[in-house]
Design a binder for these strands. Structure first.
Length: 271
DNA sequence: CTGTAGACCTGGAGGC
DNA sequence: TGCCTCCAGGTCTACA
């Protein structure tokens, strides 16, 4: 499910829980990507949610004496539900808050997500401290990106999906950004020109900004915390459009495989 | 150090 | 129906 836009939409949707205090935590399944701390229910009880931020695809929920680091993996989802909401097979964690009797419920069929507790600065956490820049920050610019692509023999799509190069660009938005930039996904990174990198940086920023505005992409199972789907899937130009006509030139969109992931592009519009 | 395949999981779609 | 294979929004780890 979630690339940066979907995670950001989720983070914003959690804001109604700010300043609310946890009454009880129920973990039904501790085995996610990393095991949930077995002490978590006791640790979180009576903690107040003070701030919500995001680093890459990680949601950072700051509480009174520590931070929950939440990653949604491929199929994770957070929703705010009333206490009598019917249970789904893959609802692994319930965090019940005191005010309004709301439950923050974590569902994740594939269990590639993670919920980690730390009392340290989360930016020093090993999963977070070595991440590349945020795509919407000023520091992510053409000068930076070309410096990272210059030595790489890897293809450019894999490079921009590497969270140590830039965070948040997943399989959908990598294909989309490369389409807007007119660059084939299988181009060797070091052969991409400065002019193309300029365009690529702008395309990544624009595609991610637009996707956040449209509420993310709902493919099968992305919904925001209130169960509403996103609309950005209607804006996809190449992702999932194999054998369909390019919106610009009508040539059929090609699907190839790069690094075990599907990639989509137009042979005429992308060089 | 760099790059890639494998691993972790469940479920849905499509073929037979 | 059922069984099989392949595919899916991520990313860490092991290995060449």
């Amino acid at each position: 499910m979630p690339e940066l836009p979907e995670v950001e939409v989720t983070r914003i949707g959690l804001k109604p829980l700010l300043q609310n205090t946890i009454a009880k935590v129920l973990v039904r399944n501790y085995s996610l990507r990393w095991p949930i701390n077995s002490e978590l229910p006791g640790l979180l009880k009576n903690q107040t949610l003070l701030a919500l931020s995001r680093r890459g695809k990680y949601i950072l929920a700051k509480f009174t004496s520590g931070t929950l680091i939440i990653h949604l993996g491929m199929s994770g989802r957070l929703c705010i539900v009333p206490s009598d909401e019917k249970l789904n097979k893959h609802d692994h964690v319930d965090i019940r808050f005191k005010k309004n009797n709301l439950i923050l419920r974590y569902r994740d069929p594939r269990r590639f997500g993670s919920i980690l507790w730390t009392v340290e600065d989360p930016y020093n956490h090993k999963l977070i401290k070595n991440l590349g820049p945020e795509p919407l920050n000023e520091e992510f610019d053409a000068k930076y990106l070309i410096s990272r692509l210059r030595n790489k023999k890897q293809c450019v799509k894999n490079a921009i999906m590497d969270s140590h190069v830039v965070v948040g660009v997943g399989n959908i938005y990598a294909s989309e950004a490369l389409y807007y930039a007119g660059i084939r996904p299988n181009r060797i990174s070091q052969k991409v020109s400065m002019k193309e990198v300029l365009s690529l940086v702008e395309s990544i920023k624009n595609v991610i900004k637009e996707a956040i505005i449209k509420g993310g992409s709902t493919m099968n199972d992305f919904f925001d915390v209130n169960g509403e789907n996103g609309y950005f899937q209607n804006e996809h130009k190449v992702y999932g459009r194999e054998n369909k006509p390019c919106f610009r030139c009508q040539l059929l969109i090609i699907q190839i495989r790069l690094g075990q992931r599907s990639s989509f592009y137009c042979k005429k519009c992308q060089r």
